[in-house]
């Protein structure tokens, strides 16, 4: 028996919008810790890891660990039928091949339930160890989105370099080149507008802009984004989900032949 009641149902809608273009099918895992997902894109270049902690739900009942395979496009179709202010409850029964999404309007005058077929998915989980990163950049998520979008009109890849000067995003394409440098800036009105650069050592890595642009679909989930870089690891692009957890995207770098 599974019953998860999320008062801020729009969070789940936003999570689906952030993941459905990257991953087609995924197993949602439910345990005492929370509602989570780990899935790679079809080319095994990018990975999404989601955690919505159990404490963030108004009601969280998960009698035993359960994994539910869902087609994210179909799940998105169903969640789009929920209003932005609706409370969403996810319900499942042991051994059932369906999951039910219940939507309640804020004043309880409309209650809908949508039953979706589950699917068997052979998921490949990767072990992601805790790591020390060479540099961690925290910046407004809208700024990161803007940079990725702007650069992708010039080139296909971006070199992200962190030095003590700041973080530089560079691209080149047929029409020319572009460089955007963001310096640390803590003198802002609100903390989420700050750009904070923690650098243990300089680092420079190349990534496909197509994936970074896909990650920025999570921008509505958080005012700020954290980009963690290490020369030996995939980049981590993390959006914190207030009071609940996070959505993290991992992207393997381009490697010089």
């Amino acid at each position: 028996m599974l019953e998860l009641r999320l008062v801020q149902g729009s969070l789940l809608k936003k999570v689906l919008e952030a993941t459905k273009d990257l991953v087609t099918d995924a197993n949602f895992d439910c345990s005492a810790t929370g509602f989570s997902l780990q899935a790679m894109d079809s080319s095994h270049v990018a990975l999404v890891a989601l955690l919505l902690r159990s404490e963030g739900f108004e009601h969280y009942r998960c009698d035993r660990n359960i994994s539910m395979g869902m087609n994210l496009n179909n799940m998105s179709k169903m969640l789009k039928c929920a209003g932005n202010d609706d409370i969403i409850t996810i319900k499942g029964d042991d051994g059932s091949d369906t999951v039910t999404f219940m939507f309640e309007s804020p004043n309880q005058d409309k209650i809908s339930d949508f039953e979706m077929k589950l699917m068997d998915i052979d998921s490949e989980h990767l072990g992601i160890p805790e790591a020390e990163y060479h540099a961690i950049v925290k910046m407004p998520s809208s700024e990161f989105q803007r940079i990725c979008k702007d650069l992708s009109s010039i080139g296909d890849t971006v070199v992200i370099s962190v030095t003590k000067e700041g973080v530089k995003f560079s691209t080149r394409g047929d029409i020319g080149t572009a460089n955007i440098v963001c310096r640390q800036n803590k003198t802002v009105d609100k903390p989420e507008e700050a750009t904070i650069i923690e650098m243990n050592e300089p680092v420079s890595l190349t990534f496909a802009l197509r994936y970074l642009n896909s990650f920025t679909k999570a921008t509505p989930l958080s005012e700020s984004v954290t980009v963690s870089l290490s020369s030996e690891l995939p980049v981590v692009v993390e959006y914190k989900i207030a009071d609940m957890g996070y959505i993290r995207f991992y992207l393997a770098p381009k490697i010089e032949d």
Binding site: L126, Y250, I255, D257
Partner: peptide, 14 residues
């Protein structure tokens, strides 16, 4: 020319 890395080169399956 740079080639695209794969996640399995960095993380092991569990």
């Amino acid at each position: 020319k740079a080639s695209q890395g794969r996640l399995e080169s960095f993380f092991k399956p569990v």
